[in-house]
């Protein structure tokens, strides 16, 4: 399963790679990364068919995660990728806004990787 992680913090990348070390080794998951919404859209242009899941931060300079979400929902109807939004602000207002913009799930920082792992495993089936 190919997962695109969108976050402006570069260190998110080694973190995911290590947290999912076993899964990556067993070829359960494959991760790709984008540092901004714009980069993510460029990436999608080429590989949207491979991508199953997008994990995106909301607060990013430039294009925000919500804007990215809207663009993805607008541009890629089939097959619709699963999009999970991540934010430091876990309030209802934010959650509702994300969900109504078409997010499949909503996670708050600091990320609970075990919970995320469970959710991803669920998706596999």
């Amino acid at each position: 399963m190919k997962i695109l992680v969108v976050d402006d913090e570069a260190d998110v990348q080694p973190l995911f790679l290590q947290r999912f070390r076993k899964e990556i080794k067993n070829h359960e998951f494959e991760f790709d990364f984008a540092l901004s919404g714009e980069e993510a859209l460029d990436y999608m242009k080429e590989k949207h068919s491979e991508i199953v899941l997008i994990l995106s931060d909301i607060n990013m300079p430039g294009m925000s995660g919500l804007e990215l979400l809207l663009r993805i929902r607008h541009d890629y109807e089939v097959p619709p990728p699963v999009v999970m939004m991540i934010t430091a602000y876990g309030d209802d207002e934010n959650r509702n806004q994300a969900m109504s913009s078409g997010a499949n799930d909503f996670l708050t920082k600091p990320l609970d990787f075990n919970l995320l792992k469970e959710k991803l495993k669920e998706l596999e089936h």
């Binding site: 913090e9 260190d11 973190l15 290590q18 947290r19 430091a88 920082k109 600091p110 990787f113």
Partner: peptide
């Protein structure tokens, strides 16, 4: 607070994952 939260998350996450890595 928000700005500090980010690096602190990294400190926590990298520490945790390092413990796992040592076991591995």
């Amino acid at each position: 607070a928000h700005e500090i939260q980010n690096p602190l998350n990294f400190v926590n996450n990298f520490s945790e994952v390092s413990m796992e890595l040592i076991d591995e």
